Amino acid sequence: MKKIFSIVMAAAMLLSVLALAGCGGSKAPAPTTDNKDDSSATTELKTVVAGKLTMSTNAAFPPYEMTDDSGKIIGIDAEIAEAIAKKLGLELQIDDMDFDAALKATQDGKSDMVMAGVTINEDRQLVMDFSDTYATGVQSIIVKEDSPIASAADLANAQKIGTQRGTTGYIYCSATTENGGFGEDHVVAYDDGIAAVQALMNGQVDAVVIDNAPAKAFVEKNPGLKILDIEYVTEDYAIGFAKNNTALKDAVNKALKDLIEDGTVQSIIDKYIPAEAE
Rank of each mutant, 00 (worst) to 15 (best):
I7T: 08
V143G: 04
K110T: 13
S39H: 11
G180F: 04
Y170Q: 15
S267Y: 05
T67F: 00
T234Q: 11
K226E: 05
A102I: 04
G193Q: 09
L14P: 01
T264M: 09
D185Y: 03
A78K: 10
N202V: 03
A150V: 12
A242Q: 15
D229C: 02
D132P: 00
D38R: 12
K243W: 05
M113L: 14
T47I: 10
E122A: 15
K52Q: 15
P214A: 09
N245Y: 14
K104D: 14
L225G: 02
P31I: 06
K2Q: 12
D37M: 15
L200T: 02
I84R: 02
K2C: 05
I210K: 04
S131I: 10
D132T: 01
D69L: 12
I161T: 10
Q107L: 09
G180C: 05
M115K: 06
M1I: 10
I84A: 03
L45K: 02
M9H: 00
Q139T: 12
T264D: 03
M9S: 10
A30N: 14
T136N: 07
N222Q: 06
G51Y: 01
F130S: 10
G25F: 04
M13H: 06
I94C: 09
E44K: 12
L225V: 05
I239K: 01
P214V: 12
D250G: 07
A101M: 01
A11G: 15
A41T: 14
E220W: 01
T32W: 15
Q198C: 03
Q139L: 14
N121M: 04
V118R: 06
T246S: 15
A19I: 04
V197S: 06
V205F: 10
M115V: 08
V8W: 08
N245A: 15
N35H: 07
T42E: 12
Y190W: 00
A153F: 11
A30T: 15
M201A: 14
A175G: 08
A78C: 03
G181W: 01
I149H: 00
Q139H: 00
A217D: 13
D258N: 13
N212V: 03
F218P: 08
P29A: 05
